[in-house]
Every structure is written in C-alpha cells, then in structure tokens.
C-alpha cells in the first residue's frame, strides 16, 4: 500500500521572469485537484519565506547572483526531488545572454558612464545580492533530478509532468508538450 500522506511541494523563481509560475497557474481548475494531493511549502502561492523538508521542489530561473545560490542550496538541502522548470533553469535562458559581456564593464556602463548619467554610483547596499560574473543553469550549481524545458512550459506540460511524478511514473513529455520555446 502506497503512503497516502500528502506530498509537500515547494516552488521558487530565481533569475527568471515568473512566467513559468504564471504557466503553472494555467493548470487552472486542476489546481483544486492538485491541492487535494499536495501541500505547498515555500512558494509565491503561500508566501512562506523558507523551505522546510519537502518531497518536490520546482525551481524556475537560472542562477545570476549570490542570493540565487543560497535559495537553490536551501531547496537542494530540503527537497528529495528537485526539478528545473523552464528554459532559464535548464540552460540559463534569457539572463544568460549576458554571459559574453564583462560584468564589470556592464555595471560601469549602466551606473557610471552611460549617456545622460550624472553622479552615478554602482549600488553597494549590503542588502542587495551581488551578481555572479556569469549566469548559470541550476544544474551547474547543484544536482538536479528532472528537467521541464520550455519558455515557459505549458500548463499542460507541467500538469503531465507533476501527475506522472505523483502517480509514480517516470515523467515523460512527448509531442507536442515537449517544447524549448
């Protein structure tokens, strides 16, 4: 007999646009079915700030700054299964398009030397997370168990993946759910 205990699920967005979370909401009325089987831990849906022990973690976005690293590690420590959700988490996506630029030069141009700037200053408040010199997919920082590509993955793709997982099937996305755009 399978354990009928409710599954704990956490979600977060790192260097992403929250589009994957919007797409997650696109499962629409199936959310009701989902909360029959799942309790949400840390997630924008609950506003819980730190992740406790969980069964599944969904990570949207890549890793572009120090805070992203801390949050990602918190999820890895607490989630038995960690899933990369969407193009940015899978391969860096849009934020990684800055990777061929030098970070120092970028900061300088944006905050100091850009046209029309007077008395510019690079923000240095300790509250702000420092940017990494490159943006990384999350599987370059911690071990990741599953990947759901797409920009964003459709609600149907997310639903198929999660229900496969909850029902004990190895998740599969065939045509037309598997998409990179």
């Amino acid at each position: 007999m399978l354990d009928k205990r409710k599954i704990r699920l956490a979600t977060t967005s790192l260097a992403g646009c929250f589009g994957c979370h919007m797409s997650f909401l696109d499962i629409d009325e199936r959310l009701l079915e989902l909360i029959e089987r799942v309790d949400f831990d840390r997630s924008p849906l609950t506003d819980i700030k730190h992740c406790g022990p969980c069964d599944i973690g969904l990570i949207e976005g890549g890793v572009c700054n120090a805070e992203n690293v801390h949050v990602l590690r918190e999820f890895r420590r607490n989630c038995k299964v960690l899933i990369a959700l969407g193009a940015c988490a899978v391969n860096g996506g849009l934020p990684a398009q800055r990777n061929h630029l030098d970070l120092g030069q970028c900061l300088q141009e944006v905050y100091l030397t850009g046209e029309g700037l007077v008395n510019g200053q690079i923000p240095n408040d300790p509250e702000l997370p420092l940017p990494l010199d490159k943006v990384h997919p999350i599987d370059e920082i911690v071990r990741i168990d599953y990947f759901i590509p797409g920009c964003p993955p459709s609600g149907d793709a997310i639903w198929k993946f999660l229900t496969d997982l909850l029902d004990g099937r190895t998740p599969r996305l065939g045509h037309p759910l598997l998409r990179f755009d």
């Binding site: 997919p137 370059e140 990947f147 590509p149 998409r179």
Partner: peptide, 18 residues
C-alpha cells in the same frame, strides 16, 4: 530542436561552453 524533441532530450546535461 526537432531531433531533441524526437529523442526526448530534456536538458543539455553538460556544463555550457557559452
């Protein structure tokens, strides 16, 4: 991309060269 779909490639797996 079409072949990646056909062969169910879900992630690039290796670290990116960028």
């Amino acid at each position: 991309q079409a072949l990646a779909y056909e062969l169910e490639m879900l992630s690039p797996h290796f670290d990116q060269f960028y």
